[in-house]
Design a protein around this nucleic acid. Structure first.
Lengths: 334, 334
DNA sequence: CTGAAAGCGCTAACAA
DNA sequence: TTGTTAGCGCTTTCAG
């Protein structure tokens, strides 16, 4: 910057004014400074300015998602990026991998870099460690999973109701021998889906103790193996509710390998790529990751713009998409 | 930091030493400082340190991919993140959307934030604007697409050969009426795939002037519509080569809508989610996005570690995966 | 082993 | 309209 000032024959402050488009600079000076900046390939250092700037903003936010290569996360990320780009804010993205240590490290890495806000998918037992940061005024928005130990803006799908809708859909088609395949049991979001499923069975008067509830499936392969084992039981279910996108994919593989894809009903929670091109199409309770990301970003920016109201919890509705697999009728017990 | 120093009753430099794990501090002092830092919830400001630090590193890199919600991009991103995490480096991620303006803005946003290195997917005619930054010593690695106007490390798939393999695969099964559906014509990567396709037809003695070459398909919907139009021609192809993942998905929709998925052969470039669960399975020339991301990150870090050798161009091989759609024999002309 | 002073690139406050 | 001075939070250099 000094060099630019020297070359343009003005003071550093004038350069600063031109770079930041502040008023009260003559057109001639602007031209001189711009030319000098171009000649020297000057790139302003955002961080140096931040050190002194009144608002102390880095125009940067941190985003922690399940994994940047999961389609749900990708859609959330994209929506957050679009909102951020419109405000000149850059996004740090990290993958959680459902590892509490990664959560802590990612948050710490974000904070050391003085992000203006945080959008977090979490797995730790408690997010109380964020309390000091929240007091300091850093906006934190939790996505996909509710926080524990702190109150802050949260954007989640209607997991309980979505799971209930999926379950009712199967019950209404006459299924009585259902099975639940789901994510890690300690994830509150997974718990909600499990509860939505079991509650609905209870309402239908079905003894849930005989219903297979298989949890802790964390990737396609473990889900596939669990589903294969389930299908080989003496008394296999006539319908499966898979409570997460990777679990659904694992189940799809298992059904296909067993040749049962047209015989056993399946409803998945969260949409799956190309679900409509499969045979049969995969019926899902679709989430709305774009909307989740959009709202999360909106919350962060509203807080940065001064919104000091109490923590807002936004529940994004899910939508049942019938494509075939969820409409398979129960097979006679054989 | 001053507060921590005051609370611990030491000088700021001592705090600095403790935070950075520098030697020559007594255990007692370390304990005092650590305790004070914890009490005050002290988070060191990486950027402030950077201003003065000898190496001037922000421990941050910028990654520009096609779109963070494209599966190929997601896989590249994940590989880059894994490599970066191992070195305590955070990743800024942005989507290019094949928009030259976004490329410039993203790079500029990265540079203003003083990233240590850049991993870029590009769309502009020339990347000559990066020359000053390269001279300054910032490592830049181009992924998926070759740069123009500058020489720097590049990691790409073997697009020419991959496309040739796909084409040969169809030719060997007796197809003569092929069609090419591809991405934007100005993308060099797309050009290479198109050339690989056409060259192979030439080698087989097929007059390429009668071969439909449909380009500038930039999303699923435009690809779907183009494929539908193609299939409704008087003399539709017996085999299609779709040269990008979204194009492949669009073609799959069109084939399905026309009921021709078992009648017309299809080979796609770049793998597609759940390709193996479709009916028929989708034969593809798979790229290796994990490897591309891994190598790109490795190049950046090698440069940061002092590697000053000439620009390295790494070509990551592709792999033909036969799943059914590419093995459909040509239909008699009817 | 520890601390004081200077300065990284920038902006705030004020003066000219 | 423009320039000067101080200082953001840290690390460097050098002195104790």
């Amino acid at each position: 910057m000094r060099h630019v000032a020297a070359l343009a024959g003005v003071g550093v402050k004038t350069v600063s004014r031109v770079i930041n488009g502040e008023p009260n600079v003559s057109a001639a000076t602007i031209a001189k400074v711009t030319a000098a900046a171009r000649t020297l390939d000057y790139q302003p250092d955002l961080h140096a300015g931040n050190l002194r700037r009144a608002d102390g903003r880095t125009r940067t936010i941190g985003l922690l998602v399940g994994s940047v290569d999961n389609p749900f996360s990708g859609a959330v990320h994209r929506a957050v990026e679009d909102a951020a780009l419109a405000r000149g804010v850059a996004v740090f993205a990290s993958s959680l991998d459902d590892d509490p240590a990664r959560e802590q490290e990612a948050v710490s890495a974000f904070l050391r870099r003085r992000v203006d806000g945080l959008i977090l998918t979490t797995i730790s037992e408690s997010q109380a460690y964020l309390a000091p940061e929240l007091r300091r005024g850093t906006p934190v928005v939790f996505v996909d999973r509710e926080p524990a130990g702190v109150a802050s803006d949260t954007v989640v799908s209607d997991n309980l109701e979505g799971a209930a809708v999926a379950t009712r859909h199967l019950l209404e088609r006459g299924h009585r021998r259902l099975a639940y395949l789901g994510d890690r049991a300690e994830i509150r979001t997974a718990q909600a889906r499990r509860r939505g499923f079991l509650d609905e069975l209870g309402l239908a008067g079905i003894a849930t103790r005989d219903i297979p509830v298989i949890e802790n499936l964390h990737d396609i392969e473990t889900a596939r193996l669990a589903a294969l084992a389930l299908l080989e039981r003496d008394d296999p279910p006539t319908a499966i509710f898979s409570a997460q996108n990777l679990v659904t994919i694992g189940v799809l593989h298992a059904l296909r390998e067993s040749g049962l894809q047209h015989a056993i009903a399946l409803v998945g929670f969260d949409d799956v790529p190309l679900a409509d091109l499969l045979e049969p199409g995969v019926t899902v309770v679709a989430q709305n990751p774009q909307e989740i990301g959009r709202i999360a970003a909106e919350r962060v920016f509203a807080r940065l713009d001064g919104d000091a109201g109490p923590a807002v919890r936004t529940v994004v509705p899910t939508r049942l998409i019938e494509r075939g697999s969820g409409e398979i009728p129960p097979r006679e017990r054989g």
